[in-house]
Design a protein around this nucleic acid. Sequence first.
RNA 1: GGACAUUUAGCUCAGUUGGUUUAGAGCACUACUUUGACAGAGUAGAGGUCAUCGGUUCAAAUCCGAUAAUGUCCA
Length: 881
Amino acid sequence: MGISIKYNPRLIEKKIYDNWIKGHYFSSYPDKRVPYTIIMPPPNVTGILHIGHILNNTIQDVLIRYARMNGYNSCWIPGTDHASIATEAKVISLLKKKGLSKELLGREKFLSFILEWTKKHQDIIFYQLKRLGCSCDWSRTQFTMSEKLSKSVIKAFVNLYDKGYVYRGNHIVNWDPKAKTTLSNEEVIYKEQIGILYYIRYKIQNEENIYVTIATTRPETMFGDTAICIHPNDIRYFSLIGKYAQIPMTNRNIPIIQDSYVDMNFGTGCLKVTPAHDFNDKNIADKHRLNVINIFNDDATLNEKCPLSYQGMDRFNARKKIVEDLRKLGFIVNSEKLKQKIGFSERTSSIVEQKLSLQWFLKMKELSIPAIKSIKNEEIKFYPSKFKINYFQWMDHIKDWNISRQLWWGHRIPAYYYGNGDSDFVVAENMKTALIKAKVKTGNSHIKYIWQDKDVLDTWFSSWLLPVSIFDGICNPKNNEICYYYPTEDMVTGSDILFFWISRMIISGFFFKKNKPFKRVYFTGIVRDNKNNKISKSLNNSPNIIDLIEKYGADAIRMGIMLKTSAGKDFHFDDKMCLQGSNFSNKIWNAFRLIKSWNIEIENKNISESEKIAMLWIKNRFYFILDSFNNSFKEYKFDESLMILYKFIWYDFCSHFLEIIKPKNKNISKIVYSNTIFWLENILKLLHPYMPFISEEIWNIIRKRKKEEALIISSWPKRKIFDKNVLFCFENTTKVISKIRHIRNMRNIPYKESLSLYIMIKRHSKIYDPIILKLANLTKIVTVLKEPVNTSFIPFSIGKDKFFLSVNKNYILHDEIFHLEKKIKYFYNLLSMIRRNLSNDKYVKFVPHDILLKERKKESDTLEKIYHLNENLKSMKDKMK
RNA sequence: GGACAUUUAGCUCAGUUGGUUUAGAGCACUACUUUGACAGAGUAGAGGUCAUCGGUUCAAAUCCGAUAAUGUCCA
């Protein structure tokens, strides 16, 4: 026959993928069809893909293949992210091993090292995606540092600056004193630590022996204090309001102010305000117009604003010495241990300093208004919708976005300076324009030297533009592609970047395009291993993707993953789920082998009744399944839709349909065969989005296909009405079969031993009998009016129908009687529960009418069931005598 | 510290506005079945006081409150 007994994905997947590429099936160009666009969240070039990416990209591929087969012009755009700080850190540590540093190399050489690194990882990432079967349009591959995207970033920056949204200003930022750069919030990792809370007294000015005691974990910042703050309701300190307190070991006096931010129960209820080194203190300072004193150098040593004896000292050494000195002078009243959360730099592990710093910011409040609206009115839908809560929470308290980074790898800020003053700069797309602007701004036409800002932009400042910039919608707002492909359909991403990316993309979409960037956001859960640990590079607990694919096949991994994923839920990865996938592949493969092994009879001889029924049933069953599959799929319940398909293929198609039509002599009539192939082809279509390789492979072995007949671009089955009655009758038939198999199983009656069945049914249609005969291996089915005599049998009932399976007397067991009695008892219990309801006046009075009817029917059904079971029990007991 | 979420069979999860025969699925498990597509298989079975306690109701896995555990985000 030439088809291998085991399905071997390794031989097949590569060949199939190459054919898809050769057929250009992934490519998309604007045409008359409706577009369906997905932008792949670009993986960072810092590393290679892990299981989380596999989950994410499989979902996207499933969506895009489904759309493609449903007639849309599908366009899935792959890409990578330059990941400014993370990549720079990786390369720096690589260089360090070689004894090099970025300063030693200089900007240009350093960047060439990074480019080399980037190229290497891009290749690995794209190779991994291809092995997974991703049908992205590779001719549209993006990179966030490409020329096109960089241009858009710069243009967007200039545009936002010109409109007054981008500004340069002094704000508190997260500062990594080791790397000497600002950090985004996500690059700060909070860990709980035990610190010491010091109680320090500050003398009240112009008062003898009156002090106010504050509590702080950071005594070294006291030289930056500009106020002491108490809660407006705190009566303990009313006498101090309006007075000044003297910072110990200095001559400086600071005001005592009131603000409800202060927690009266924490420490003494008095807060020292250090606006240059704490977000909240800065807020208070802004409100009360306090001074701001920065006491740190860039490397977090104390600067000239501090007393001479501490200048130049590291912050931690300074703390020790200050505490020592304060103790000596009697300023420390108390100290106690305190659990606190400390922010560490993800990159250098140094403790992050909050620091007032001159940086570039984007005003967010106004920009966020349409973005909030779009989620409120469901113009953009979240799956699951619970993430709307988080979204609104963040959006409602949105802060200006610090977009500058003191790094080299990234988009250089297009600000050009002509002097050392804080506002001696212009913002322009290039140096030439900048020079002109500078001349205009200063009125000095002799300016010759201007220099560009050394810093780069936050990575997210490029990725937040992607849905627009990918189609060049920022530089060429009216071009064909942006008009055709925008807005995109789905965004599939982890919930952890809701704020950093999703929210900002929505903002940028409405700003630059006056329209949403995508219609739906599907949030994948966090991927964890079977010990509930987050899959991460640092734990090194992600399996190698290529190894997994080699072992199980891409289809098996896709299937295993999709069967377990559910929007927004954490995802526990286990090798076992791939095993289920590969078993399933093998099942399909062997079903196909079976069909292929049959000889088609040229002459059309009579088709048996059971074949007719099987064909009728599988047709109706298919359209029933198609509906439920589509419904689940449209709700983005991929696990559910796949499970529907899984069971349909395994149980309905293989266990029932194929078993019924399976010929003994391998000869099958042409009609039955072509019918079987027809349904198999339809099954392959439904399967294709999830398991593209095996489905395409079988599709092509069934018969030779032309290029335009590939499964990947075939059309999705159209829904049709189905006859519920056919499904119902068939289901009853399988119940009988199942019952007989159970009886065999209980008594170890070999399958080979043929049995006879007597049926006592009022209106029994015999058309299903051949199926029962075949699948339960019976010699005959006889319709009777009453219990058969002179033969030993096992009675059973399904609904109101009674059955008697004739067996050798030896097979009747006491066990069965015991089971029957147990069952009867169960129904008596049920009956008593039903009757408890029905005898309850309140129940009868309040319950809706239809429920009451149902309950009454339940009662009569149960009674009937008990009656039948008792009958069975009685006859069985008689037989035992 | 604050906000939110989760807790259902050994594991991973369904369970729509309280009412469909005292809770469902897949996997794993147990028993039996091996020349007839597939042992990567077949058939059947067993598994749950729905986290705990209290409340609302004729009726609670479902609604409300408290507690506990876990997780995420924010500070």
